[in-house]
Design a protein around this nucleic acid. Sequence first.
DNA 1: CTGTTAGCGCATTCAC
DNA 2: GTGAATGCGCTAACAG
Lengths: 339, 339
Amino acid sequence: MFRPPAAKNATLRDVAREASVSLITASRALGNPSLVSTATIERVQEAVIRTGYIPNLLAGGLRSRRSMTVAGLVPIISVPQFLPTVQSLTETLDQHGYQLILGQSGYDHAREEKLIATIMGRRPDGLVVTGLLHSARAREQLRKLGIPVVETWDLSERPVDMAVGFSHLKVGSAAADYFLGKGWHRLAIATGDDHRAQKRREGFVAAVGHDVPTATVPAPSSLALGRRALAELLRQDPGIQAIFCSSDALAQGVLVEALSRGLRIPEDLAVCGFGDADFSAHLEPSLSTVRIDAAEIGRMAATLIIDRCNNEPVSSPVIDIGFRIIERESTAGSAGCVI
Amino acid sequence: MFRPPAAKNATLRDVAREASVSLITASRALGNPSLVSTATIERVQEAVIRTGYIPNLLAGGLRSRRSMTVAGLVPIISVPQFLPTVQSLTETLDQHGYQLILGQSGYDHAREEKLIATIMGRRPDGLVVTGLLHSARAREQLRKLGIPVVETWDLSERPVDMAVGFSHLKVGSAAADYFLGKGWHRLAIATGDDHRAQKRREGFVAAVGHDVPTATVPAPSSLALGRRALAELLRQDPGIQAIFCSSDALAQGVLVEALSRGLRIPEDLAVCGFGDADFSAHLEPSLSTVRIDAAEIGRMAATLIIDRCNNEPVSSPVIDIGFRIIERESTAGSAGCVI
DNA sequence: CTGTTAGCGCATTCAC
DNA sequence: GTGAATGCGCTAACAG
């Protein structure tokens, strides 16, 4: 078993002794300075520096029942769309003294439940889930936890607790309406097999009024899969005019494959992605897409959690951050203009 | 079934009572079963299920001085190159019961030190740093912590503790040798401004024997910056034959810009990236690059930490995982062949 | 194999 | 303003 080396960390007791005050006064000087005289605070702060004291948040959390951690659950960390969310979540939490504990649930339902149990052992003060939970049991687990929970990247009618996201159905129908408004009627979809992408497809099909050729690829989607998807779709209908893709990576693959087949974009084939990746505006041709403010999702999720931890009123437990279709060259038909 | 909203979590004491054993026996049944009879273990396990007990790892960590957490420091989470490392690190740690606490140091030296202090408050059992530390003070802090530290994505001659990475100098010189071997002599570099990329540039220049036109872009590098970088390099030397880029995103930008200027790849301009992103093999033309096994870095880092936590001997504290140049169409000159 | 005792480091009672 | 006691939930150490 691992034994900590001789150089033990200074404890608050050491600080108190250095500053010639009691343990609790030292504690207050650091955590609740308004209760302590200025002179004492200064003495304690000096003692902290001299001893190299680093507060033990495990001990503090045990006693105060606030671990100052928030758990973040993602399917896998390397889903590019979620990255800005995780980043801004981490940053915003950090600004308020909270740390993020990251859990990857994979795409496995059983794992999801096990992960929740493991992570709850750390007694986080809140939980942020990226994407709705798969299993009903997991949702039930969360409901019973009694800590703030934010579900992100989707809007449920009945969230476990709170939610920050947008309607994937509406994204789908908006994309379809956009294509139809351009006068394109032979439409198709290249999509990942995850739940949210499927809902966008549903919205798309509903707005079109009938089913459309669809190529479904396994997660995580990629440029390579986009190339394969276009090949598949052209097999289903060689006369496709416009394709809605479930990610910009996929859309880029469609672009590459289309160009290598000598198709002109958007005259022969229009393409719209999803997510507004950093590269999308700079491709040739530039890629139209649906923009989601992923970083804002993380910020809002953090804010909701922190407010609830401080017993501050939360204005609305369900926040729709919306979306925007960004028109670029890949769909710049007659009715539109290049941004 | 009624449950008060603030239903307190069951503690080990509750489990022990349910199972009619002492506290410590319950503890051992769960954490050290070899010391307890099979019948008792079973009774305890049933009690766990009946009570819905979730061990409080804060309390356990406080007492045992093992928090079962590992801190991971990255500049920012959304650097694509590090993602597979973070992912496999999380997974490997998870398999051994450890959780990753993520810290983003930004690109700010002062923040780095502050972050280390914050994170140490959680008393992690180990620390994984992605990239060498910027500030000497931060390195000094780590040395004094007395916990296993793994620096990744680089090899230092004098690591704080352990290291898993590769030589950026060698990558640079290998890239230069590769270009020179193709008969290309008017070389250039498009590079991010981070320390590791600069070392690759150093190695490149050393192998070439003289300085080369260089476009330096701020982190994080992107396709857009790659386009700008090529424009800049062509201004410096319109006759450039081959460019070594510090990331595949940057290289892709160079490709896009080159094609939009009517340059033929690789006849007019050869391009090599770094990192072997998932899209690189599927671009048109496909992108030559330097492949690093990023996931392996994460796995090895986790293993090193865990071994050290268990006081198991670590074969070597510095592990070179090497790299490989992957030749594809963007550099498929006469002397080579397309993979 | 099982139990008793004694804390881990800190913050929440209460007291003055 | 300050302090003394108490215990958060768990496990290391030593008994039996």
